[in-house]
Design a protein around this nucleic acid. Structure first.
Lengths: 412, 412
DNA sequence: CGTAATAGTTCATTCGTACAACAAATGCGG
DNA sequence: CCGCATTTGTTGTACGAATGAACTATTACG
């Protein structure tokens, strides 16, 4: 099943009949003729967008099971809408009329990724081909900042960038704002972001982006979506646990290429999983949370560095000394709980862990092998994240484009 | 989103065209005219089946958004197929032609729930109304038993019961076998069931049930599905964590009334979540697993009872003494991890915990309040299971009927 | 008893896909 | 160099399913 559920918008259908008969049914509503068309349009769009090498109309027909005639009309609509482009017919060494390769149209519809993090603001624009069309990342220090000021500044940058791409004829389909904290994508509320010192606010209006469709999500969740694009040589797994280590530690679960969000999008709080109840007190009030062992500040302190030293200093120190990070066993323990509870066999380590993985891997894998009940029967994989810097920006923009892809009919 | 994904059968569509064009697309395949009908049939069937009081054709039309004419033809098909029955028209105090109430047809199509557990074998048959049409539960001791012998015996009982209901004119739609261990519903393999002493086998053929569609699942998963029926007065939550405590401790996650299974259905292994790394060694080899604090044997031992004493003896002992169970804090700690990782706010305690809840609740709730990061923003609920004894039998049978409901077109 | 109201049915219309025939464009063998 | 097989893409007809409007059936109410 691969229906894409856009962030925070579930599809309950509430129908009200006469006074006596008011009933709510969840799930997709009544299917009409145009529902057929919408679904097949999506099918064709996915075939064009998600296949490694370009397909022809006939190829799409074969891949989808639709009749060639049907595919032709659908493709024509996508081309007319500017979502798909025809490449020159390729007359490659075999008989028959040459096929017209179909590719996602570059620089047509784009998605905006926005992010506020502790040490930067960022905006990134991706088009349907996955290319970064524009980008601005502004370093800063936003610990204990004023959300109104910071978000309005980010909004200014976003508007600037957005106006730029719009001036080149591209359509901005929407934006996703990544925040490091408890965010409910459905209500677009931020409950608390400890490292920003923000709490209980609605970030979207503060951006001042007018009618643009802006949704909010946790930073680790969007970074996980960025992983789905895969690396240059590494193909992305369909299901994985993504752990983003920084001052706080967040995680996301991707199953069958879809984010699992729980009831409110507040899942993946692996930073506060119990590692040792007799351990140090955490900022959350509990004792022995993972963050106290494998948070950035704890790792710095354990290495004899000041807690706010740059990550690079820890890396050079580790590269010289030939010792593993003590955080490895703690991280392994929390990950083992995660895997025992979720049954997802690939773990992608992002944020600070990406660089630190060489000094974590041995301990993490050893503890996983010890503690994961299914370890004898599964090939547990621990990988470094591939998505590059400010992954949440990429993931947010990708999420916007996924919504376009899920309903191309809205764009024809 | 409420598409029902039947246990272990995901719907990847692989289409093979000519030699050059072989492409795989996940998700539902091409939508044709008959797809429309199937989907609307499902919609109508769900409206009839999942609504508290009977709807008329007109009521279904209002609830689904379909035209009355369409609903009429669809309902007629369901009635002809024997899945839906018309009650006598009710001429209740208002003007107009009296409505014909539609209800699930009793004793027409039934589902079989099967279970092997440590202390019993069971078979239960449910019809579309949710009534138990037949049932056999045979006590026994199956610790370290021979799977071939036990499963063949269960198969015999199942065949007997199944033949009985078939003789009364009912159609058996399929069966689900619940097992206490690591089971992959997709491959129908049991990897290991520690408390039965079983490992690495394919249970379905050993039942000897011939062509009947039998699928396999973990006991806690199916028991969780039983919870969805709700209690006599309590309405079931749409999303919850179900924890089944016994010798081992298993759990299941239900989100939007659907089981979350992870990659292989091996999730929910909360019994081996870390409570205290300096704690006692677990049967799994690791240290300080929840099972060592809140497994049935550990709880018995902590209360000064023999580990294999019946649960009732612990209950009477607790009822006399006015003390909480020490397991409460450990259980709370593991549940806090679960909630932090999943973001599901309702916890249903099943198995032995159902009866023990009064002596667990205070500690569980206190630890949850301490350790769950989102606790200040959510109303965390801890409830006792409602589904009654051998819940997995009920859940398994329900699961079969859900598959019928998801594709009534197959029965018309 | 007539009228309003509600449930259910009948039928022409509309829309989207399938199938088959056809047109277009190429490679290849003689 | 030409005819033929081959593959792509298009055109036109047929079919299936939902719709809305009109119609029938059955009740309550004044």
């Amino acid at each position: 099943m691969n229906y894409y559920v856009s962030l925070g918008y579930s599809q309950g259908v509430t129908t009200t009949g006469t006074a006596r008969e008011t009933t709510t049914l969840t799930g997709p509503g009544a299917a009409r003729q145009h529902t057929l068309r919408e679904r097949n349009l999506e099918l064709v769009a996915r075939a064009v967008f998600e296949v490694p090498e370009p397909l022809s109309r006939a190829g799409v027909a074969a891949a989808t099971g639709l009749a060639r005639a049907t595919v032709s009309t659908l493709v024509d609509q996508l081309v007319a809408a500017g979502l798909v482009r025809e490449l020159p017919a390729v007359t490659g060494g075999r008989a028959g009329r040459p096929a017209v390769p179909l590719v996602p149209a570059p620089r047509s519809v784009v998605g905006l990724g926005l992010e506020v993090n502790v040490d930067y603001l960022g905006v990134r624009v991706l088009d349907l081909t996955g290319d970064a069309v524009a980008e601005r990342v502004v370093p800063g220090a936003f610990h204990d900042s004023d959300p109104a000021v910071v978000l309005s500044r980010l909004g200014d940058i976003a508007r600037e960038v957005s106006d730029g791409v719009a001036a080149s004829g591209m359509t901005v389909a929407g934006a996703r704002l990544a925040l490091p904290g408890l965010v409910d994508p459905r209500t677009a509320r931020l409950e608390v972001a400890p490292n920003l010192g923000w709490s209980s606010l609605e970030p979207v209006p503060l951006l001042g982006l007018g009618a643009l469709d802006v949704r909010v999500a946790n930073e680790a969740k969007l970074a996980a979506l960025a992983e789905l694009a895969g690396g240059s040589d590494v193909v992305a797994p369909d299901s994985f646990i993504f752990v983003s280590g920084d001052v706080g530690i967040g995680a996301a679960i991707v199953v069958d290429r879809e984010l699992f969000l729980g009831e409110r999008g507040w899942n993946g709080e692996i930073g506060h999983v119990v590692v040792d109840p007799s351990g140090p007190r955490c900022s959350c009030g509990a004792f022995g949370c993972l963050e106290q062992y494998a948070g950035k500040e704890a790792m710095m302190r354990a290495a004899g560095l000041p807690p706010d030293a740059p990550l690079g200093s820890l890396v050079t120190l580790l590269a010289d000394a030939d010792a593993d990070l003590p955080a490895g066993r703690a991280l392994g323990s929390a990950l083992a709980d995660f895997v025992n509870l979720f049954d997802v066999s690939t773990i992608v380590l992002g944020g600070a862990y990406t660089e630190l993985l060489p000094w974590l891997r041995a301990d993490v894998e050893a503890v996983l092998a010890d503690r994961v009940l299914a370890a004898p029967f599964v090939d547990l994989q621990v990988r470094a994240a591939q998505a590059g810097p400010q992954a949440a920006l990429t993931g947010g923009a990708r999420e916007v484009l996924q919504v376009v892809l899920a309903d191309p009919a809205a764009w024809v």
